[in-house]
């Protein structure tokens, strides 16, 4: 087997706050290979965004990352900023949830798109513009020659997200990180965006880390998923197996608590009781135990480590088998 494109090992993220040091991400490990799509699923505050922000050195000033994240043979967490700048936007790029706030409203699309090409590929203005035009056409923007000189406010939400995707793909990255890319979009536009990402991935063989809370989007796009809860990965595995046979009580709870178009109507939704714990009040031992129907003595004592169940699947649960 070839070495994975990105290998994250025991990544932790801490924030220094007035309430003391808070742990947002607590020893997360995962790997992603070329051309693979990994979905990271979790509720707000589970640490999924901070995990990927830490990879790119984008934590806020009071944040500190530890652990290792080896990408193409280099540890991203240990790179000096100059080298990291060579990686960001070129080998790894990122798209964000809200396409309006992540584009600069004062600059035309042309300026924003050619900037990255001038920086990373040292292209001249006309060559950069030509490449930007090509990319806009590739993401399905009609009349790119006219649109490229417009400003972000002249684009609709879905079109802005296409521009973001085009910008992220300009340098043909090995890894694309998409943080809730469809959450702010309407359902028909979401379907277009998901279709576009799937198409681009088959054409370019880009690895994608997709962060979302929408299990439907995960089902349609991902090869593998990792479920996060309270800063840790609680279960990971191939998407089919995870959906058909979840092994962690939280994964099962998530899957059964969403209403679905193919469910039998009239049935009550299964619920997970309680709320996710606040970052300052995580219980000792397994963070999920207060909400878990199967918790027993061991769960209060020490947090379960992420252990392989069968090939390619791992879970962090003291239960051997989920009843």
């Amino acid at each position: 087997m070839t070495a994975p494109l990105l290998n994250v090992d025991a990544l932790s993220v801490h924030f220094a706050t007035a309430d003391g040091e808070l742990c947002a991400v607590d020893g997360v490990s995962f790997a992603i290979s070329k051309g693979e799509t990994l979905g990271i699923v979790g509720e707000s505050g589970s640490g999924k965004s901070q995990t990927v922000l830490a990879l790119l050195g984008l934590l806020s000033a009071n944040g500190r990352a530890s652990g290792r994240a080896v990408f193409n043979g280099r540890d991203l967490l240990d790179l000096p900023i100059r080298d990291l700048n060579q990686v960001r936007g070129k080998e790894v790029s990122m798209i964000f949830q809200d396409p309006m706030t992540s584009l600069n409203p004062y600059l035309s699309i042309a300026t924003q798109m050619t900037e990255v090409l001038a920086l990373h590929q040292r292209l001249g203005r006309s060559a950069a513009r030509a490449q930007a035009l090509q990319m806009l056409a590739a993401v399905g923007i009609a009349a790119p020659e006219r649109r490229i000189d417009q400003y972000p406010h002249e684009f609709s939400g879905g079109m802005r997200q296409r521009v973001m995707i085009a910008m992220a793909l300009l340098c043909d990255p090995h890894l694309l990180i998409a943080d809730e890319p469809t959450t702010a979009l309407d359902v028909t536009v979401q379907a277009q965006t998901v279709g576009l990402m799937r198409e681009l991935q088959t054409q370019r063989d880009t690895a994608i880390i997709l962060i979302t809370h929408d299990l439907g989007v995960v089902a349609g796009l991902c090869d593998r998923i990792a479920v996060m809860y309270a800063g840790r990965i609680v279960e990971t595995g191939p998407v089919d197996a995870m959906f058909s046979d979840p092994q962690h009580p939280y994964t099962r709870g998530l899957l059964t608590s969403v209403p679905r178009l193919d469910e039998i109507t009239g049935e009550r939704l299964a619920t997970i009781p309680g709320n996710p714990p606040a970052i300052t009040q995580r219980p000792r031992g397994c963070a999920y135990r207060d909400r878990c129907a199967y918790a027993f003595a061991a769960c209060a004592e020490h947090p379960p480590p992420l252990q392989t169940v069968i090939n390619g699947r791992a879970k962090a649960c003291h239960l051997e088998v989920l009843p």
Partner: peptide, 18 residues
């Protein structure tokens, strides 16, 4: 356009998005 939380059915569906 609604994605189904079911990987096998989702892959076999032919979406024709608007």
């Amino acid at each position: 356009a609604v994605p189904l939380p079911d990987p096998q059915r989702e892959r076999s569906r032919s979406h024709t998005p608007l």
